[in-house]
């Protein structure tokens, strides 16, 4: 396998909106450290699940990959080219291979644009097809994602479609450019339960067919395990654990991963109780040392002072005192 995407020391700091009085009394600009030094890589044909709670920065990572957000620092190396150093036409050409599927299928389609045009437009933008060819490709893609009869769906407007159908359109729009890498940002969390499986299986079918690589962003560990080859767990802007899905899920080393796992509802409840204290800290001033230490039941003195590095070979964890448990 060869690596298709590598992210190195990626950071995104958002300046904090301040009131007049705050600006007056403090000179320093404050930042929300949404993503704070994140590194990972994705192999060709691999799905990396990125999990974490809301506000942990996982969506911001995805948005940076597809160019919707400029990194504060760090590199995004896609097919041996650093996307952050590219500009203009070259950048646009590279981004054709990097597409995104958003969470909200109700907001991600243009309410005044026909379904078919949503698929044609990307092809025309990149000059990949003439009008009539584009229409043909769009029809094929509609059929491919299960919107049949395609000619009927082609002329409809988004409001005439259900949430599940809209998400199929969003997938079709991303796939029509034949990308090599797709960021899927919570693609099923707003879809009806009984329709989720269909959407997930559809995405997985593209992986097999095109050898597609994917960053699958989700808060749902069950989904993350199902679709992912590997899994990365984020907490307060940092990756705290990353490794092969089964290893991370069955032998979690980070107390946060274990706490998440013990809270996931399941038909087969495991006897796993890892406590977690309080609430997530404010990303404006993350705690010193390990960011998780105020909530960690195992925290020791070192955790409050020294920030742990992500260490390990294939299963990497950022913890001074990694757990040694096995769940089966």
């Amino acid at each position: 396998m060869s690596e298709i995407l590598r992210v190195e020391n990626l950071k995104k700091y958002f300046p904090v909106q301040k009131s007049f009085i705050e600006v007056f009394f403090s000179k320093e600009l404050e930042f929300i450290r949404a993503v704070d030094d994140v590194s990972f890589s994705v192999e060709e044909g691999e799905i990396l699940s990125l999990v974490g709670e809301s506000g942990c920065g996982k969506t911001t990572v995805g948005r940076m990959l597809v160019g919707l957000e400029e990194p504060t620092s760090g590199k995004i190396i896609f097919k041996n080219k650093d996307l952050t150093s590219l500009e203009g036409e070259e950048r646009r050409a590279m981004h054709r291979h990097l597409q995104i599927i958003f969470q909200d299928p109700y907001a991600s389609l243009n309410p005044k644009m026909k379904i078919g045009d949503h698929l044609i437009d990307p092809l025309l933008i990149h000059g990949l097809a003439s009008n009539s060819e584009a229409k043909e490709i769009a029809m094929e893609m509609l059929e491919r994602v299960g919107l049949v009869p395609a000619d009927q769906f082609f002329n409809r407007l988004p409001y005439q479609l259900s949430g599940g159908q809209r998400q199929r359109v969003a997938i079709a729009r991303a796939m029509v450019l034949k990308p090599e890498f797709v960021v899927a940002d919570e693609p099923v969390s707003m879809i009806d339960v009984s329709l989720r499986a269909a959407i997930l299986n559809l995405l997985l079918s593209f992986k097999d067919e095109y050898r597609l690589s994917m960053l699958f962003i989700t808060h749902d560990l069950s989904v993350a395990r199902l679709v992912g080859d590997r899994i990365a767990v984020m907490y307060l802007g940092k990756i705290v654990e990353i490794g092969d899905v089964d290893e991370v899920v069955q032998e979690p080393k980070h107390p946060y991963t274990a706490a998440l796992l013990s809270a996931v509802p399941s038909f087969e409840k495991k006897d796993l109780r890892i406590d977690i204290k309080g609430d997530v800290a404010n990303p404006r001033n993350p705690p010193p040392g390990c960011r998780y230490h105020p909530r960690c039941p195992f925290a020791k003195k070192e955790c409050k002072e020294v920030e742990p590095e992500l260490t390990g070979d294939r299963h990497r964890v950022a913890c001074h005192f990694p757990l040694e448990i096995k769940i089966d």
């Binding site: 909200d104 991600s108 389609l109 243009n110 729009r173």
Partner: peptide
């Protein structure tokens, strides 16, 4: 700042296209 405009941007659409095909029709 709506999602469908971001989606168009992610698909590579430039400013003129976004204004004419994605924003203007919603202003009519």
């Amino acid at each position: 700042s709506r999602l469908f405009v971001e989606a168009a941007r992610a698909a590579g659409a430039g400013n003129t296209r976004i204004m004419s095909k994605y924003i203007f029709p919603n202003l009519v």
